[in-house]
């Protein structure tokens, strides 16, 4: 596996996504905000939403090598790139950024064939209409991870073969990890 190639392909992918969004396309996101973020004052306010792009972050601090943010409809392409590179989908999860009225879907990829290489792919989608294409066509293992994310966040994975409650009871009507969930 050639790490540089993977990073380049992901950069190209992210650049496409930025072209769709004129307001962020003007800024090239190449600086390492890992350091910036650490320098920020410690407050209870969540950090500002990041722009789309590929960052090479400090592995020793963050635990990942490459941090990719792309458009929601690009996650399948990203999965295909990483699948061709021989990487494994380790987990899918979500984060509810209620202050931005956005949900973030996070895909953790790792490489099991040799030296450690971890890539995190994230996509932000609207909180009011949380839909994102499924990657279970590329990684069948994503099936359960997406169902779990659907359980917890109510994110609808388009094209998922069986989007039912996995861990929660089949008749429940709430999504507990949304920040406005107040118990049931």
């Amino acid at each position: 596996m050639n790490k540089e190639n993977v990073i380049q392909e992901l950069q190209a992918l992210a650049a496409e996504g930025m072209a769709d969004q004129p307001e962020v396309a003007s800024v090239a996101a190449v600086a390492g905000p890992a350091g910036e973020e650490e320098a920020k004052p410690q407050t209870a306010i969540p950090p500002e939403p990041r722009r789309n792009g590929v960052l090479e972050v400090d592995y020793a601090v963050r635990g990942v090598h490459v941090d990719v943010q792309i458009q929601g409809d690009q996650v399948v392409r990203a999965a295909q790139i990483l699948d061709e590179a021989g990487m494994t989908l380790e987990a899918i999860t979500g984060v509810d950024w209620i202050n931005d009225q956005e949900l973030e879907v996070v895909y953790d990829y790792s490489y099991t064939g040799g030296s450690c290489f971890r890539v995190v792919v994230r996509a932000r989608i609207s909180r009011h209409e949380p839909t994102i294409p499924t990657v279970s066509g590329v990684f069948p293992g994503a099936n359960w991870h997406e169902r779990e994310t659907f359980d917890f966040f109510g994110i609808h994975f388009e094209g998922h073969p069986q989007l039912e409650y996995l861990l929660l009871p089949e008749d429940c009507d709430f999504h507990p990890l949304l920040k406005d969930f107040k118990g049931c």
Partner: peptide, 29 residues
């Protein structure tokens, strides 16, 4: 510091990993 962190260890059954997102508070976001 705010941001997200990932750490994986080898548990008896395979990779156990935690992704923690912090907003700088004393508890995880």
């Amino acid at each position: 510091a705010a941001g997200d962190y990932y750490h994986a260890v080898e548990a008896a059954r395979g990779t156990f990993a935690i992704r923690a997102v912090s907003d700088g508070a004393n508890q995880a976001y």
